[in-house]
Design a protein around this nucleic acid. Structure first.
Length: 256
DNA sequence: AGAACCGCCTGCTTGC
DNA sequence: TGCAAGCAGGCGGTTC
């Protein structure tokens, strides 16, 4: 699933590809997605906002694309529609297809006012505000990491990886985590996310970059998807269990 | 406040 | 082989 590193990868590729270009056409192939009447607008920039792709136009509007579970953006020179194409933005040089088998992805246009969230770990993260808001919460740390209003960009795969690297149990209450451990979580988060960006994301099933290539971070995972395999820290077995309706992977022995 | 569940969706895997 | 059930889960919503 596209989380922060995957969306960051896409935004960087998309920015290089379409910034400064003029939109020739926009088309929706799915009644769930809006038919946007935007033509002749110039793309100023493509930026990531949490897990959202924000395409900034020269009139100040932004097109916000959220890929949810199985959404992908694909650049093609030709207009032949890939299977499961749901939405399309065309340029004289080629086309950006939104491909999404499960149709969870969303597209919307918002006004000029850009949101500048202070909860994105890689952009202006306000650690004090985060700890004031969530540091005393009784919720499990994994659920806090997955809460996009608390901290933007982390999804199920990287939450497991971050807690494994931090050696903190996903079941620990936020309120029971001390300052040293919070530091460990913040450091691990940056390390995991930046490392995954370098590898152009984690291609476990659906994820592909703008050019249809797999990422390489699936080879780096130490917790997610490794149930029954040995923990690289202590040799004990990685456990898979259910937390908040999703699977959680962790080491019972070394994640405290 | 927080946990648990649902609906949105479709493709893939599993079990009989 | 075939078909149905189960599973995957981000996010917004409701309920307990």
């Amino acid at each position: 699933m596209p989380e922060l590193p995957e969306v960051e990868t896409l935004c960087r590729q998309l920015h290089r590809r379409i910034a400064g270009k003029i939109i020739a056409d926009v088309e929706s192939m799915d009644p769930k997605l809006p038919n946007i009447k935007i033509k002749g607008q110039k793309i100023i920039a493509v930026r990531r906002e949490g897990k959202t792709v924000a395409i900034v136009l020269d009139d100040g509007h932004r097109i916000l694309i959220h890929l949810r579970m199985t959404g992908r953006l694909l650049w093609q020179k030709g207009r032949d529609r890939p299977r499961h194409s749901r939405w399309l933005m065309s340029f004289s040089e080629g086309h950006v297809f939104l491909v999404d088998p499960r149709r969870f992805a969303t597209v919307k246009v918002t006004g000029a006012k850009a949101i500048n969230p202070d909860n994105d770990l890689l952009n202006n993260f306000d650690r004090d505000a985060f700890l004031n808001g969530h540091g005393k919460s009784k919720a499990a740390i994994k659920n806090i990491l997955l809460n996009q209003r608390a901290i933007a960009g982390i999804g199920n795969i990287y939450a497991s990886e971050i807690l494994h690297l931090s050696r903190i149990s996903p079941w620990r209450r936020a309120a029971d985590i001390n300052k040293t451990e919070w530091n460990k979580i913040f450091c691990s988060s940056r390390r995991i996310l930046l490392g995954a960006i370098e590898k152009r994301g984690t291609s476990i099933s659906d994820w592909r970059d703008l050019y249809g290539r797999m990422g390489k971070n699936q080879n780096e995972l130490l917790a997610y998807g490794r149930e029954g395999k040995a923990c690289v820290n202590c040799g004990d077995m990685i456990i898979k269990s259910r937390q908040g309706g999703r699977s959680t992977f962790y080491c019972f022995r070394c994640q405290k």
